[in-house]
Simulated scan of single mutants.
Amino acid sequence: MSGPAPASPFSEDEKQAVYRAIHTRRDVRSNFLPDPIADDVLRRLLLAAHHAPSVGFMQPWNFIVIRSPAVKIQIKAAFQRANDEAAQMFPERQRKLYSALKLEGITETPINLCITCDRQRGGPVVLGRTQNMDMDLYSTVCAVQNLWLAARAEGIGVGWVSIFHDDDLRRILNLPDQVTPVAYLCLGHVDKLWSQPELQAKGWRSRLPLDDLVFADGWGQTPDTCPAET
């Protein structure tokens, strides 16, 4: 069936399941279990990512599934080099806490996944990308979020590792020039998740109040009312 279908709301249970996945999703760096991820589960996660919205329906993503211990060791070394540099960028009062944070599970998880953006996908002119050339990158990030929420529903922990030099990922994963690495993810079963974001729990930063972030009809214009958080 190719035409429009009824757009009825979800049942109350279905809605609560969606919101639960959103509110309990975590960036996981530890507490991974050694259990392998079944192929059918991985397929469902990738299919969820592949159903993300994309501007002009360009679908610019690719998924590099990494199971090789040798590749993971190279990735871990690239992370460590970049992380040592990053620690020196923070003020001294933050540096000790930063160094104590566990920021990756590269060699502890059965699957690493690099989600990339092919910046030539769809050709030189893509519907919806005619003025903003970064819409392909934004579309790929939507694929990351789809996969993350699906993983939460499956009991799979996901950790996004962003502390790399781009050239290192390109070299290790043999990426073509037109392909940009968007997200490097560590995937594994977990039996525990933080009740709040780990960086908040460990004192790095707190969630900003929603009311401070909502404007009306233009930047800085406070709305008369903002829906209360529940």
Rank of each mutant, 00 (worst) to 15 (best):
N62K: 13
P209L: 09
A86V: 10
I163G: 04
D167F: 03
R25Y: 08
K192D: 13
P209I: 05
G122Y: 02
N146H: 14
Y138D: 07
E92C: 00
M58A: 11
K202E: 09
A153G: 11
E92H: 00
Q120A: 13
R205G: 12
L199I: 06
I156N: 14
Q88I: 02
Q74L: 14
I22Q: 06
G3W: 09
L149E: 07
R121W: 06
A21D: 14
P36L: 09
C226Y: 08
K102L: 13
K76Y: 07
A183R: 01
D84H: 10
S99N: 15
L137M: 14
A228K: 14
D166V: 03
K72I: 08
L47K: 13
D224C: 03
A49K: 08
A100P: 00
Y138A: 14
G157Q: 12
Q94E: 04
G159F: 05
R171T: 15
R44C: 09
P110H: 07
Q88N: 11
N83R: 06
R95T: 08
M89E: 14
L193Y: 07
A5M: 12
Y184H: 10
A77L: 10
V65P: 06
A17L: 08
V179F: 01
A153F: 02
D168M: 11
L33E: 15
P223A: 05
A49C: 09
H23C: 05
A143M: 10
H51G: 07
L210K: 07
A52E: 02
E154C: 09
G123T: 13
P34T: 02
S195A: 13
M58T: 14
R95A: 11
D217Q: 11
V18S: 00
D167L: 07
Q221P: 00
V190K: 12
V158W: 13
Y98A: 03
D136N: 15
G203Q: 01
L137Y: 14
P227T: 06
F90M: 09
L47I: 15
R44Q: 15
Q221M: 12
A183M: 02
M135T: 14
C142Y: 06
D118A: 08
I75T: 05
V161C: 02
L173Q: 02
Y184V: 03
E92G: 00
Q16P: 00
Q131C: 04
A86E: 13
R121Q: 15
F90I: 03
H50D: 12
E85I: 12
C186N: 14
P53F: 08
C114F: 03
M133I: 10
L185A: 03
V179H: 01
Q131A: 06
T222W: 02
Q80G: 05
A70V: 11
E198F: 13
Q120D: 15
E14Y: 00
G159Q: 01
Q131P: 00
W61I: 07
A17M: 04
S99I: 13
E104G: 00
P209Q: 11
R129H: 11
G220S: 05
F63A: 08
E85M: 08
A86F: 01
D212G: 05
K15I: 01
A49H: 02
S68E: 15
G56V: 12
N174H: 10
L149M: 10
S162R: 02
